[in-house]
């Protein structure tokens, strides 16, 4: 439905995107600004004379935090998939008793404020000696994703034709074998969607990191930025450079995996 009559819409669309993404532009702009120009009045609208001192500082100081976040993100994805794939299969195809109750509990679980979860985890981790550990953070971060993952897998797996599973059964495949050889390969796209979201949520987590990991030497990038803000408020170019680097996974998702994102956002929220 493109034509000459819609050219104004394209123009307006570009203006709207410009307005919406101005903060992102500003982040990049500030990250390239010299420290001496940081307090210029009025601020420099364009990085005419870009400097990479912000990025040098950011990479020099935040590289370990980026590695930690990467590890936590991948760990959270692994844990989330290990828990939710079999559960989704069971709820979708194996008709466990109490399945409806689990559905309901998963919906409710998504409504619990993270600050409440953080307090509960804090109390438990204090006893177990799991405060300030990467493993503790992986478990806590997985609670952000598991209910979503199970419900998404269940909805997807319910659409796998019953005949396919029946055929496998006739061939003598066990339930486990059916799960591994039929369900998992067919669920590839939903596994990608769940993995991407889980990674992004774990990567972006601030509440659990700032409560369960706040006295640790091994901190994720979100806490790295937070401490940065607290420590040297003059070096906003370094802070914004770190922010730009921390946004790379988001950019990656947007460019390479956009269709999986839309699939995830609308999953369940709008019925087909």
């Amino acid at each position: 439905m493109t034509g000459p009559g819609t050219r104004w819409k394209t123009a307006l669309g570009i203006v709207l995107v410009g307005l919406m993404l101005f903060p992102v532009y500003w982040m990049v702009n500030v990250s390239l600004t010299k420290t001496s120009d940081m307090r210029a009045d009025p601020p420099h609208w364009f990085p005419w004379d870009p400097t990479f001192e912000g990025y040098t500082a950011a990479l020099g100081q935040q590289l370990p935090a980026l590695a930690t976040s990467l590890f936590i993100g991948l760990g959270t994805v692994a844990l989330t998939l290990a828990l939710s794939l079999p559960a989704g299969y069971s709820l979708a195809k194996l008709r466990p008793r109490g399945g409806r109750t689990i559905d309901f509990l998963l919906l409710v679980a998504q409504m619990i404020p993270a600050v409440v979860m953080a307090m509960g985890f804090y109390a438990i981790y204090l006893r177990l000696g799991m405060l300030n550990t990467v493993w503790g953070l992986i478990v806590a971060d997985s609670t952000l994703a598991v209910p979503f993952a199970v419900l998404l897998f269940r909805a997807f797996m319910a659409s796998i034709p019953r005949e396919l599973l029946a055929a496998a059964q006739i061939d003598g495949a066990s339930t486990w074998r059916t799960f591994r050889s039929i369900i998992l390969p067919l669920s590839r796209n939903s596994v990608i969607t769940v993995s991407l979201f889980t990674f992004l949520w774990a990567w972006s987590d601030f509440i659990f990191a700032s409560t369960l990991n706040r006295n640790s030497d091994v901190i994720p990038i979100t806490l790295g930025i937070y401490r940065y803000i607290g420590n040297n408020t003059t070096q906003w170019n370094s802070i914004m450079a770190t922010a730009v680097i921390a946004s790379i996974p988001a950019a990656f998702l947007l460019v390479l995996a956009q269709r999986y994102i839309s699939a995830g956002v609308t999953a369940g929220a709008v019925k087909d």
């Binding site: 819409k9 394209t10 709207l16 972006s204 990038i221 988001a250 956009q258």
Partner: peptide, 25 residues
């Protein structure tokens, strides 16, 4: 319309950024 898919995708950016990034910006 022309470019509408790309432009709409760009609107997702704020939602994908870590909150600490948006908040500090």
């Amino acid at each position: 319309f022309r470019l509408s898919v790309v432009l709409r995708a760009m609107f997702l950016v704020p939602w994908l950024l870590p909150l600490i990034v948006s908040a500090s910006t």
